[in-house]
Design a protein around this nucleic acid. Structure first.
Length: 512
DNA sequence: TTCCGACAGTGGGGTCGCAAT
DNA sequence: ATTGCGACCCCACTATCGGAA
């Protein structure tokens, strides 16, 4: 199959807002693909590379290369070149990568270049990723969409399922069962604004502590242990403590879901930054493990002794977990009878926060493990803080925000009467707010830049955030975590905005 | 007819590791 | 030694489509 066909379909998919139309277009393309094209076409149309990320970003792709006049590139040819690209490393590799990219781009037409750039930067933006590719695949092969979706979640990979499905037909889907050693997409939680709301929605539930670390799925088969992240990357080699912990458990075969976190000498959880830094260390793992040891803390069991537990109610899965995993290696929890018992849930939440954790997750006792879904049966609740901050600048948006001032530079007042930038946010804005702030900030502009505008520090905006973290980027030495706009405060003057001093006083645990 | 679940899009900060400077 | 870049952790929120109620 020619690459131009992919680029064309991708353009058509991007041009329509209708999901059924997108699905139809994808299905048609999948039907036309030759069997050997499939392992490439499927991920390309889902906006991904079969090789994963390959060390090519906007810097290399930004170079201008004259496009070819006629489309000659094939899908498989491109894939072969990218496989070569992914294998390049060592001194001079950047130049070599750039050479290969230029060769590829030089052979591509204008449309193909656009498509390839999107693909390589992971910004396909055609309004169809994995989920719609699954729908299209189901349509193309006349398989049941729900069964295909489930197979993808259990395989942890759309490609694998697509290949089997196109080669063998819908019968192949039965092969995709939970298997020890093959990671499954993890179940995710939705947000709730309060403990009361979560308990109200769920009724009888378990309220568990939410640890601020790295999500892990741990597989053990005899002496073999594998540890996977939320995106199913294998990080076993970086976490020897997790392997030892899994080997000490009284079971030979299991799959557990949990969080990896580091506790300090005082027994309190270390900051997310410290835990994440440790988990990210690959070179001298032994030293990293000595300085920042981590512990696995589990909250669910997906498989025990070869029994698939996914479809069991959470209460039963947890009973299996409790049989296998001793107390300190399990998340703390409280059982709540229902809304009439909200006070005890709130009490548990307060105690969890006092121990230095992030918040709680309330979980329905009847719910199965919905791999890969952000189901309504897991509700997380974290404390939210707010500040009144001053807008110093705004950046031009991209995509659907093109032409609108989007990303705000936020600052608090300093003791000397100036402003200290604390971070940026583009979150929480409605289309109406985007239009309004583009207009208003335009009036306040004192300097036009290619990236946006600097403005007179007059506009006050109310910001919600999850907490403070240390920063080397910003002058106060701290930055806001997950800042988002609540509303503009035109009733406030910049001198009414919060100060850096107040902010630091409100978060004594963070040292600037 | 209205409601709501699922998706995609729009980017945020930090850290690590590698290659280039 | 320092800097720039890419990958990958954590993540909130809005708009929209289309099936469910």
């Amino acid at each position: 199959m020619l690459l131009t066909r992919l680029a064309e379909v991708s353009g058509q998919v991007a041009a329509t807002a209708s999901r059924t139309r997108k699905t139809d277009l994808l299905a048609e393309l999948f039907r036309d693909a030759e069997p050997d094209d499939v392992p490439v076409v499927i991920p390309y149309l889902a906006g991904r590379l079969p090789q994963g990320r390959i060390g090519v970003g906007w810097k290399v792709l930004g170079r201008e290369v004259p496009p070819a006049a006629d489309p000659t590139l094939t899908v498989r040819g491109v894939d072969a070149l990218l496989t070569e690209l992914a294998g390049v490393s060592g001194a001079g590799s950047q130049a070599e990568r750039a050479r290969i990219v230029d060769e590829l781009m030089g052979a591509a037409t204008d449309d193909e270049q656009r498509f390839l750039r999107g693909l390589l930067t992971g910004e396909v933006r055609q309004g169809a990723l994995d989920a719609l590719a699954v729908e299209g695949l189901a349509r193309a092969t006349e398989a049941d969409p729900a069964t295909v979706r489930r197979a993808v979640m259990l395989a942890g990979s759309l490609q694998t399922v697509a290949q089997a499905l196109l080669a063998e037909g819908p019968g192949a889907l039965d092969e995709f069962r939970l298997t020890v050693g093959r990671p499954v997409l993890p179940m995710l939680a939705r947000s709730a604004s309060s403990v009361a709301e979560a308990v109200e929605k769920l009724g009888a539930c378990a309220v568990e502590e939410k640890l601020d670390g790295i999500r892990v799925q741990v597989h053990r088969e005899g002496d073999e242990v594998r540890v996977y992240t939320r995106t199913l990357d294998d990080i076993t080699d970086r976490l020897p403590e997790v392997t030892s912990a899994a080997l000490e458990l009284p079971g030979e075969r299991f799959v557990l879901d949990g969080e990896v976190i580091s506790f300090g000498p005082d027994g309190r959880p270390r900051s997310f930054q410290e835990t994440a830094g440790r988990v990210g260390s690959r070179v001298d793992v032994a030293r990293a493990a000595e300085e920042v040891p981590v512990s696995p803390v589990f909250f669910d069991a997906l498989s025990v002794d070869g029994r698939d537990l996914l479809d069991l109610p959470f209460a039963e899965r947890h009973a299996e977990l409790a049989r296998l995993v001793p107390e300190p290696m399990r998340v703390r929890r409280a059982l709540v009878a229902g809304p009439e018992d909200t006070a005890s849930a709130e009490e548990f939440s307060a105690a969890t926060l006092a121990r230095g954790h992030e918040g709680i997750v309330a979980k329905g006792l009847d719910a199965p493990y919905s791999a890969g879904r952000r189901g309504a049966s897991w509700l997380k609740v974290k404390p939210v803080h707010t500040l009144d901050l001053v807008v110093l600048a705004a950046e031009w948006g991209h995509g659907r925000r093109t032409g609108k001032l989007s990303n705000l530079h936020l600052a608090a007042r300093t003791a000397d009467g100036g402003y200290a930038m604390l971070g940026k946010t583009f979150k929480g804005m409605t289309d109406v707010m985007l239009a309004w702030q583009t207009e208003r900030l335009g009036e306040l502009a004192v300097e036009e830049k290619s990236w946006g505008v600097r403005v007179r520090p007059e506009l006050v905006v109310e910001i919600a955030y999850d907490g403070l973290q240390r920063s080397t980027r910003y002058p106060a030495g701290v930055t806001l975590r997950f800042a988002r706009v609540i509303r503009y405060r035109e009733d406030k003057r910049p001198e009414d905005a919060d100060t850096v001093e107040d902010l630091l006083a409100a978060h004594p645990e963070v040292k600037a």
